[in-house]
Amino acid sequence: MDKLGINLGFFLFQLFNFGILFFVLARFVWPRVLDMLDERAERIAKGLEDARAAQEAREDAQRERDKLLSQARTEGQKYIDEARQRGAEQVQLMLREASRQADEHRAQSRIQAEEDRNRVLADTREQIVSLAMAAAEQLVGEVLDEERQRAIIKRFFTDVPAAAKGLGKRIEVVSALPLTDDEQAAIKTISGTDEITFKVNPDILGGLILRSGDKVVDGSVRGDLTALSVRIH
């Protein structure tokens, strides 16, 4: 053994030496190093785990967002469709309503227009009639001189209306001109009564008006004109 250099003293020295080395390192170096390595490994693992979790969370959020987005899109589409449909209906409705209203308006305005026209026409007619009447009165007034007056009265006497006979006891006679005695007498004979009041009113233009109580026999020009105008109306 000695030739191989194996020697108890050296052997023990080497054991002792390594023992001290191991003791020093195991006491002062390895715990710290191992703690640090473990801690670092843990931290790295945790970091990886965190990163994975974050990744997952992000993917979840992404998925959620996509879902919401697509949901919102479908919903929006639905709303749009609905709105479009409703709009179309509305439009249809409005169109119908409008056309109905328009028809109504049209009809109404037609009626109105008719009425207006009628009123206008009536007014116009009235005015025309009044104008015509006025013109006629004026014309008649101018035309009816004394002679013609007398002629009209004479014609009244010649062609006495049946109503004039037996009119009543008290008769009021209105004439445009003061009646002559002959004429007064004629009236007396026609009516058969003496209590006759004679009044003069140029407004009647010509002829005679016999009035007894509420009975009237109108033989005046004005009466004719009025009858004319009524007939025109």
């Binding site: 191989l4 250099g5 194996i6 020697n7 050296f10 052997f11 020295f13 080497q14 054991l15 390594f18």
Partner: peptide, 8 residues
């Protein structure tokens, strides 16, 4: 040295 290697 065999002392070291055998010791270890």
């Amino acid at each position: 040295d065999l002392n070291l290697t055998l010791g270890l």
